[in-house]
Simulated scan of single mutants.
Amino acid sequence: MQLEHALVLETVRVTERAALAASHWVGKGNEHEIDQAATQAMRDALNTLDIEGTVVIGEGEMDEAPMLYIGEKMGSGARHVIIDIAVDPVEGTTVAAKGLPNGIAVIAIAESGGLLHAPDIYMDKLVVPPPAAGRVHLDWPIEKNLVALAASLERSIEDLTIVILDRERHKALIEAVRDAGARVKLIAQGDVIASLAAAMRGTGVHAVMGWGGAPEGVITAAALKCLGGEIQGRFMPESDEQRQRLRGMGLDETQVYSTADLAPGQQLVFSATGLTDGELLQGVRRFGGGARTHSVVMGYASRVVRFIDSVHLEEDGARVTVRA
């Protein structure tokens, strides 16, 4: 647990700083400013850490800076802690810009090689909570998976709520889930936070289905591995160029990738901080002289999930953070 012990609280500081910086732009309708503020704050925070980190899941290639680009080196390197980093400075830039729920800052880290290097293409995903792990399959019909999910949770299909991104491509999926008797909760963005909700009891969410970003699938896998839940995913290239890139990275569009395939590391740490209010995390709440943040952080080795409520006091240009 060496990596986890060294960096579990540091990852919270990274997502807190990103959420705090982006919070100034929540509800102002400017997605670029929200993302840029969070990205720069996350970069600054990562570069203060005694690590030798490489971004393996980021927001673009090197020529797309100021985003945290794939291959970017992070940290001071003082302690030679070599890690891979997966980031989304703001998951849900559109919802955050509109002041809508479930915007978050999120990061996952692992030992070198502990996170799959996934291209920025679509992935068909199935996310279920711990009791259903190993009891569903992405290739099965929708109703068969819902029957298995309901049985694992000891409830009826009619009691299930399935989160699906509100996209035209999901029309048939939505109809199939409803025809089977389950409820559908449509979301505009944010399948990482939706997957966390599905993996935790008491949120009212029982699974996530449908196409979303492959990079987010890797970040989700890191969290699901810590929680004991399951994600299954298949890359869905939409062009010959994407297929060639996928094959060039040694990946197979016919394979169903498991949680362990997407996040094979044994020293995984995941952290998310709420930017706007949601079912699982509260957003940044500003007050005179400071702000309050709500985060979740977890590690695979320890199997401990921590919810951290922090008050950040600003006085004479200095910041003092109090965590509960």
Rank of each mutant, 00 (worst) to 15 (best):
W211K: 10
Y122V: 00
Q244E: 15
K98E: 15
A318S: 04
R303V: 03
M236T: 13
A133Q: 09
Q282E: 08
S310L: 02
Y69D: 05
Q189F: 10
T220E: 09
V184E: 03
D35I: 11
I107Q: 06
E61G: 08
E64S: 14
E33R: 14
A260K: 03
V55R: 01
H117M: 08
T94H: 09
L313C: 02
I51M: 05
L251W: 05
G228R: 06
Q189M: 13
S295G: 07
V8Q: 09
M209V: 12
V177S: 03
R285F: 00
G58C: 11
L275S: 07
K185V: 04
A96G: 14
E216K: 07
V26P: 04
E4F: 10
D240W: 03
R323P: 00
L49Q: 10
K144A: 14
L46V: 10
K144D: 15
Y257A: 04
M249T: 01
A197G: 14
A150K: 06
S239T: 15
A148Y: 01
A151T: 09
A318E: 12
G278H: 02
A118Y: 01
L68S: 06
G233N: 04
I174L: 01
R178E: 14
R243N: 09
G248I: 00
D124R: 12
D191C: 01
F307M: 05
K98R: 15
D63W: 04
G134T: 11
E216I: 05
A133I: 06
Q189G: 02
E216S: 12
Q282K: 13
T254V: 03
I82Q: 07
A6H: 08
I121E: 00
S302E: 12
L160E: 02
L20C: 08
V305G: 00
A19M: 10
M62G: 00
E33A: 15
R17H: 10
E216N: 11
G134A: 09
I70L: 12
A19C: 10
Q189T: 15
D252S: 11
P141N: 05
L268W: 05
T203A: 04
G212L: 02
Y300G: 00
M209W: 13
K225D: 08
G75K: 04
D179F: 04
V256L: 07
Y257F: 14
D139I: 02
A6Y: 06
G317I: 09
Q266I: 04
T48S: 13
L275H: 06
G248P: 02
L165I: 15
I85N: 02
M298Y: 00
Q232C: 08
R135N: 10
G92D: 09
E143G: 00
A263E: 07
R303F: 02
R13F: 11
Q255K: 15
R306Y: 05
A133C: 07
I187L: 10
Q244P: 00
T54L: 11
A180N: 08
L280Y: 01
E158M: 01
R245Y: 01
V322Q: 03
R247Q: 14
E253I: 04
A45T: 14
R183Y: 05
I82F: 09
R13V: 07
S195E: 07
H32D: 14
G210Y: 10
Y69H: 15
E91H: 08
H170P: 01
F270G: 02
E238D: 07
A148T: 02
G99S: 11
V127E: 07
A198Y: 05
H170A: 12
T11E: 12
H294R: 04
R13L: 14
A41I: 13
R234D: 05
V320A: 03
D316Q: 12
